[in-house]
């Protein structure tokens, strides 16, 4: 009886993994169709990125969960901090970034869980694909999803708390902060997915590392909202740029060892 039930439990998983192999193969075919011999790095990145975007367009799995969660965080913080009056400008940038980071970490985890559940990462690894291309594509996918989340959350945030956050300055800081977050996040999501207690591991690994991103983004956003001159904001923006450059390189190089074998 028990064996029978187990066979039922296993079958849908099997079916799903066949579908996933299909996903991987589609990406592989679109890569190999391009030319004889190994396709160029950017073509590989494009194919894998397109696979992620196409899956998301059909399921809306990652974006919907991130969006709802981000909104809930904003509402909860409104009650937790009494976001009105004089402390608003002090607390609001922190609230905004915590909402981004919490919702973002959800998206990072989901995006890698999809690869795992449907074994499409295995499919990708079987293809003649550069490991670095997989990293760049996954990172760009995560970056796009989180930036879409931010683009929707920012106007809602502006309306909820009546703050002028829809400026090019805030946009620049948001994109730079998210780039650093997404690059380290993609690397660690690939690690966390293969550990025990994977849901807990991702934030435990990621949060201490991105402390500089959080400090710099919150400070820079607060300065912009406060109308401070750009001379004071630049050190923080430079810090974000430095973080992005260093960790894009470090994560690009080390990703190979994370997904290897």
């Amino acid at each position: 009886m028990r064996a029978f039930r187990r066979s039922i439990d296993v079958t849908p998983g099997l079916g799903r993994s066949f579908v996933a192999m299909g996903d991987g193969l589609t990406a592989a075919i679109s890569i190999s169709r391009a030319a004889v011999g190994p396709p160029s790095f950017f073509r590989q990145v494009g194919a894998i990125l397109w696979k992620d975007l196409a899956v998301e367009l059909r399921t809306k799995d990652i974006l919907s969960s991130m969006l709802v969660f981000g909104l809930i965080v904003l509402v909860i913080f409104n009650f937790a901090f009494e976001l009105r009056g004089e402390n608003l400008i002090l607390v609001a940038p922190g609230v905004l970034w915590v909402a981004f980071v919490f919702a973002g970490i959800l998206g990072l985890g989901r995006s890698m869980a999809q690869e795992k559940e449907r074994s499409s990462m295995e499919g990708l690894l079987l293809c003649p694909v550069d490991r670095g291309a997989i990293f760049v594509a996954k990172m760009l996918g995560n970056l796009i999803f989180i930036v879409i989340l931010e683009a929707i959350t920012l106007p809602i945030f502006a309306a909820f708390f009546n703050l002028p956050v829809l400026t090019p300055g805030v946009g620049l800081i948001v994109v730079l902060g998210t780039l650093g977050f997404a690059s380290v996040g993609t690397l660690f999501a690939a690690i966390a997915i293969n550990t025990r207690a994977r849901e807990v591991m991702l934030p435990i690994l990621l949060f201490p590392i991105i402390v500089p991103v959080i400090i710099a983004s919150v400070k820079a956003t607060a300065f912009v909202l406060d109308g401070k001159p750009w001379a004071e904001i630049w050190p923080w923006v430079n810090l974000l740029i430095a973080f992005d450059v260093i960790f894009l390189a470090v994560c690009f190089v080390t990703f190979e060892y994370v997904i290897g074998e």
Binding site: L187, V211, P212, K219, V250
Partner: peptide, 15 residues
């Protein structure tokens, strides 16, 4: 990754 983060954390907390 942690080691490369050390100088950036140092810089950011001092700023």
């Amino acid at each position: 990754v942690g080691f490369f983060d050390v100088p950036i954390i140092f810089l950011s907390v001092f700023l």
